[in-house]
Nucleic acid binder design. Structure first.
Length: 421
RNA sequence: GUGGCUGUGGUGAAGCGGUUAACACAAACGACUGUGACUCGUUCAUACGUGGGUUCGAAUCCCAUCAGCCACCCCA
């Protein structure tokens, strides 16, 4: 009986890691360009942090959290999302004292106990960004623009940005009631799920895929028509800023969020290429969350992207590394010389591979080819006696004799960097 | 939590009660006695997710179990 991994917890094999590095590296570069700094927070938090921020009645809290009691009798939870922990750290370390405007980003695993399927796993990874302390819609527009900028850098233009406003504590409750009144007389034509949603999350009915529900709600009141002045202005200005910088968006007044803390602007980056997991990134404003978690009265906005979903979207590009040089040697003295020469070149930062088993020349050449090395260095008895080596360009087959000298070799290899294929 | 589908080597797969379990790719080695990619040859599953059962005989039928995938719910 071999031991297998845990359901929904996946290994990321070396063949795929290059893609992950790329996704993470571009995120670091773009986010830092916009002035964000990385923050690293633990994977485990007190359960209460999530029940208080995400909301007791949400699916995440009700049935998806990995929670347990540790040996010290503390109720703890493996984070199902990143925002709560980042805000907790922000408050705990009083980062707002230094500067209420904090721009933070994070990346790492999240955990949700769900049935795995395409683009959805029990351990999954998110890259997210949070910005605190600014009410101006300018940051709404900038956050969205940064998100689109990031996807453009990855070469992904297919996902489209959808935006909505959920209002605030002033205008959402009245709207919610208005919607319930509208739905009440149509309950009979709603699906079973929506009848349940009518009670605990009436806004969610608008997002139902069932055709019966779609038809029943075509004339439903829209959140956007029921925003208070403040929220309406905020949304209008956000759109205005977006237009000014050419960030394309669609308005989706039926978009709902799964976490309770969102206010005003919410958004999703959606794709049609991922089956039923259409969201590759999502987020919104959370103007009450920081004080709700015991911090100062500061607004906030942020988003998270699903790394596995981005991996699925990224075409089969080859992100594997290519060594600069592959050593091929013949005979024992050549082997010894190769080892020291290889070591010298590695110290100089030239990546070198070699066939440790000392197989036939043909076999070594085959390995050199398979390693996709840019150059092969052939060291045989004849060359060694003359203090020479043969350098072969593996892309065009041209080879030349050269003096056996690490600086000499390093110079040639470095000034002909390979072109990524 | 609820449905549906699938489980044959490193991979993609043929097989549908009696076969040496095809074929292709990958891999290893060799044809070319010091040079990769092309060509050619050789090797590569006593094994068909696991456990039972039916049968003279099962990868092929039945049951159970496990795993994976996809969808619902929900979500990144």
């Amino acid at each position: 009986m071999t031991i297998t991994g845990v359901k929904g917890f996946n290994d990321i094999l070396p063949a795929d890691v290059g893609k992950w590095h790329h996704i993470e590296g571009v995120a670091r570069r773009v986010f830092e360009l916009y002035g964000f700094s990385e923050i690293r927070v633990p994977v485990l938090e007190k359960t209460e942090l999530f029940t208080r921020s995400i909301g007791d009645d949400t699916d995440i809290v009700e049935k998806e959290m990995y929670s347990f009691t540790d040996k010290g009798d503390n109720r703890v939870t493996m984070r199902p999302e990143g925002t709560a922990g980042v805000i907790r750290a922000f408050i705990e370390h009083k980062l707002h004292r230094t500067d209420p405007v904090a721009k933070l980003y994070y990346m790492g695993p999240m955990f949700r106990y769900e049935r795995p399927q395409k683009g959805r796993y029990r351990q999954f990874h998110q890259i997210g960004a949070e910005l605190s302390g600014v009410t101006s819609p300018m940051v709404d527009a900038q956050i969205l623009t940064m998100l689109c900028h990031y996807f453009a850098e990855l070469g992904l233009t297919e996902p489209t940005l959808q935006i909505n406003s959920l209002g605030c504590s002033e205008c959402r409750p009245p709207y919610r009631q208005k919607l319930k009144d509208f739905l009440q007389v149509r309950l009979h034509s709603l699906c079973e799920d929506c009848r349940r949603r009518y009670e605990n999350n009436p806004l969610r009915v608008l997002d139902c895929k069932a055709t019966g529900c779609r038809e029943a709600t075509v004339a439903a009141p829209s959140v956007l028509d029921n925003l208070c002045h403040g929220c309406a202005d905020h949304f209008a200005e956000t759109k205005c800023y977006l237009r000014d910088v050419g960030t394309r968006y669609e308005i989706n007044s039926r978009m709902v969020r799964g976490l309770d803390y969102y206010t005003r602007t919410t958004f999703e980056l959606v794709t049609s290429l991922l089956g039923s997991q259409s969201a590759v990134a999502a987020g919104g404003r959370y103007d009450r969350l920081i004080e709700q978690l015991g911090g100062p009265q500061l607004p906030g906005i942020g988003f998270a992207m699903g790394v596995e979903r981005i991996v699925l979207l990224l075409s089969e590009q080859d992100f594997r590394k290519r060594p600069d040089l592959f050593f091929v040697y013949l005979g024992e003295s050549a082997q010894k010389k190769s080892f020291t020469l290889m070591s010298e070149l590695l110290q100089m930062g030239v990546s070198v591979e070699i066939d440790y088993e000392g197989k036939s020349l043909k076999s070594q050449m085959r390995r050199a080819d398979k390693s996709r090395a840019r150059y092969t260095l052939v060291i045989g008895e004849n060359e060694l006696n003359k203090g020479m080596v043969v350098l072969k360009d593996m892309d065009n087959g041209v080879q030349l004799d050269m003096v056996l000298d690490s600086h000499n070799i390093s110079r040639i290899v470095r000034c002909n960097p390979y072109q990524p294929t």
